[in-house]
């Protein structure tokens, strides 16, 4: 590894502490008062999920809502946002690099778009997180048993560490599981690639998605570079004219095309043990 190991905990800490500033406005259809409520400014953890700020939003907007059941969802450019993607990656993918900060989102508490989003019930975010962690465990160790055999109490503790972005406690809890001692030399990588403008016409159709279990002991070093992985994963090229129009970001940091992912993974992986890569149109173009 080229990165000095002394710096590693610092990078990890900064990665875990990262937030996205959000400006939330209640959708006009759900406003019952004149004047309408003020927008809510809130910091959403990058490694967390959007519904985490729901409670704060409900406290702020709750009094003006029409009668009915509260089901929170978020909208950007007229498109409902998938809540199971970590907030930081959503921001990097859809809004990052285009200026405009804080990130302005519309929040809804009524008419959940069931045709566009997976339903969010009870501890749905937690369940989605653990499912993702299980999948990562399968890639890392060849079995999900390290996550499946967690007791309810240790699951709660781990989840609380994620919600509060406490990386030290999280990794100390995690070290009790076999996840930190991978038995197979593979790393789990999720790639989101946006080629076009994300708006109400294109929506999620403008985003391609693939996950990949990247084999580390490949003989060809090129297989481990960002360029190689993206090429094999989604057929996305970082070379030539097409490549110069794209940029790749992990945890808000732009990566060079010859970056070795094995070096990036330990520092910039998310709380579900996946490395999230975002490909988007270059902001320099």
């Amino acid at each position: 590894m080229e990165t000095s190991s002394a710096m590693a905990p610092d990078i990890q800490r900064e990665h875990w502490r990262g937030s996205v500033a959000l400006k939330l406005e209640l959708h006009p259809d759900e406003v019952t008062t004149v004047p309408p409520p003020e927008p809510l400014f809130v910091l959403a953890p990058r490694l967390g999920y959007l519904p985490q700020v729901a409670e704060q939003a409900l406290e702020h907007f709750g009094s003006v809502l029409p009668p009915g059941e509260d089901e929170v969802w978020f909208e950007y450019q007229g498109v409902p946002l998938k809540w199971h993607i970590p907030t930081g990656s959503l921001f990097d993918l859809l809004a990052g690099g285009r200026g405009g900060y804080p990130w302005c989102l519309t929040v809804h508490f009524r008419s959940y778009p069931r045709d566009a989003l997976q339903p969010l019930e009870g501890d749905g975010v937690q369940a989605s997180y653990f499912n993702s962690l299980k999948e990562a465990a399968y890639v890392l160790t060849g079995s999900s048993s390290s996550v499946m055999t967690l007791t309810k109490a240790s699951q709660q503790e781990l989840w609380q560490n994620v919600l509060e972005a406490k990386d030290e406690e999280f990794f100390s809890n995690l070290s009790k599981m076999d996840l930190t001692r991978p038995t197979r030399s593979r790393i789990p990588v999720r790639v989101y690639c946006r080629e076009k403008v994300f708006d109400s016409f294109t929506g999620w159709k403008s985003v391609e998605y693939a996950s990949k279990s990247v084999v580390l002991d490949s003989e060809d070093a090129e297989d481990l570079t960002l360029r190689g992985v993206l090429q094999r994963c989604l057929g996305v090229s970082l070379d030539g004219e097409a490549g110069s129009g794209r940029e790749v970001v992990a945890a808000g940091v732009e990566l060079e095309s010859d970056t070795n992912l094995a070096n990036v993974y330990p520092h910039l992986k998310n709380a579900d043990m996946w490395l999230y890569l975002v490909v988007r149109p270059s902001s320099r173009a």
């Binding site: 499912n131 299980k134 999948e135 399968y138 079995s143 048993s145 693939a210 996950s211 990949k212």
Partner: peptide
């Protein structure tokens, strides 16, 4: 998949097959 986790519904069959 393999009696353990549920992949995301927008995952491609080819990708899942290759990995799992």
């Amino acid at each position: 998949l393999n009696s353990s986790f549920s992949p995301s519904l927008d995952e491609r069959i080819g990708t899942l097959h290759e990995a799992y």
